[in-house]
Design a protein around this nucleic acid. Sequence first.
DNA 1: TCTACATATTAGTAGATACAAATTAGTCAG
DNA 2: CTGACTAATTTGTATCTACTAATATGTAGA
Lengths: 245, 245
Amino acid sequence: MAEQNVPRYQTIHEEILARLKQGLYSVGTRLPSEEALAKSFGVSRVTVRRSLEMLVSAGYLISRQGSGYTVSTLSPPSTTCLISFTDAILKSGRVPGARLIGIDRFDGDAPATVQALFDEPVVRIQRLRMVDGQPRMLVNTWVPTRLVPDLSDADFPEDGPNQSILRILVRRFGLEWGSACETIRPQLASDEVARLLGLAPNTPILAQACSALDDSGAPVFYDEVYRDSPITYELVGASRRERSE
Amino acid sequence: MAEQNVPRYQTIHEEILARLKQGLYSVGTRLPSEEALAKSFGVSRVTVRRSLEMLVSAGYLISRQGSGYTVSTLSPPSTTCLISFTDAILKSGRVPGARLIGIDRFDGDAPATVQALFDEPVVRIQRLRMVDGQPRMLVNTWVPTRLVPDLSDADFPEDGPNQSILRILVRRFGLEWGSACETIRPQLASDEVARLLGLAPNTPILAQACSALDDSGAPVFYDEVYRDSPITYELVGASRRERSE
DNA sequence: TCTACATATTAGTAGATACAAATTAGTCAG
DNA sequence: CTGACTAATTTGTATCTACTAATATGTAGA
């Protein structure tokens, strides 16, 4: 059976996005008109329009009245701060890597902040993210053992497109989170962090902490990142936010 | 004349938002149904629905099929990082303040990074942002002199709701920006910054730099923030982004 | 009183339609 | 060939309609 009740605007949205990523409509060119797309998909203009609006608000397309939809970019700026390290590095044309340092299980003996958040057995995945072979940041990810029953070293490839731990947790274990809270603190590199990142002791670094919760408010994962390099965000101003405030 | 061509869904959106802020519909309660709202506004259900969708995607409302729209919060998490310091502090129930240190004009003799960005005479507004009377961060804002012809000390109140420099620049001088790029770096407090913020020399701090551009790509302002305190973001995950990817 | 069922309410999806507004393309005069 | 006007194209706004799906409510039976 597996009857899926996915709305049509959703499938059409995904189809157009897939075409964009495939390069069927290249950057700067115009898409077929709403009318033509609606006809080709066999739906009304309203429905295809909804799909296009999603792509506009996601930043892929730009619509101009009387003119049409033009492809803006294939990698729109992320509006969240949970942007994937892998994506960001790939986008900048460099080679991302990940060295797994270790997977450790804790049962009540995790650091206080982590223990207070989860209050159940947790796994710590400790990885060193690399750029062009150089260590760039230390990432500690904490997840309840319950959610990742048979986690192993094999789940964390050292290279390739599937290094993102968020992607791994989502795809492999079906983890889902509804909201998250991220903080960025300044601090001095500890001896261990300095050694792993190849820095002088007491170098000022950024410590990012991110705790993600599911829709019921239960914690799903906790992420610590220690890095020497700056964090960069691209933001969009009034033009893009027009419809949301 | 001043004939305004504002779409109805926009005015209705604003009206409902105003009602929310006024407390007409309080948090946790249900709004009138789409049908009822449509009737009261004298528009179709589709139109009022569009307004409600905007409020849902902005985080004010939560919709449940068969149930209705409930008021989620009056201060939804910002999706951009350009959140106003004033707003954030007010939201946490503390009292924000701002001490103007000085307004200085530069004509070709600004620091290299600033000069490279603007390549024209600029003004530096140097302010100390306070929380409950304690200095919390040092903010240097650089704007082309051309855009703020008659800037003076009087434009920067020490307290009250209009401290936000972004708001001042927008309201008073009509500044607009289309996109921005923000970076966060770790560094050690210089003697001057340490003195102004009341920190020990060489304390690790965060240095935020934000450059904002208008739609044509010309720089509008450049902002430097030095702070000891962490930066916090609230993020929303898949549930909210459902319609944008 | 409590449960199970039927009914009403309410949002979600989708279509057809009409007109407005902006842009583009085409045409014609000079 | 150029410029001005016209027509066609294309998106933006808005209405009415119909049906589906989830939720809430009310009612009858145990």
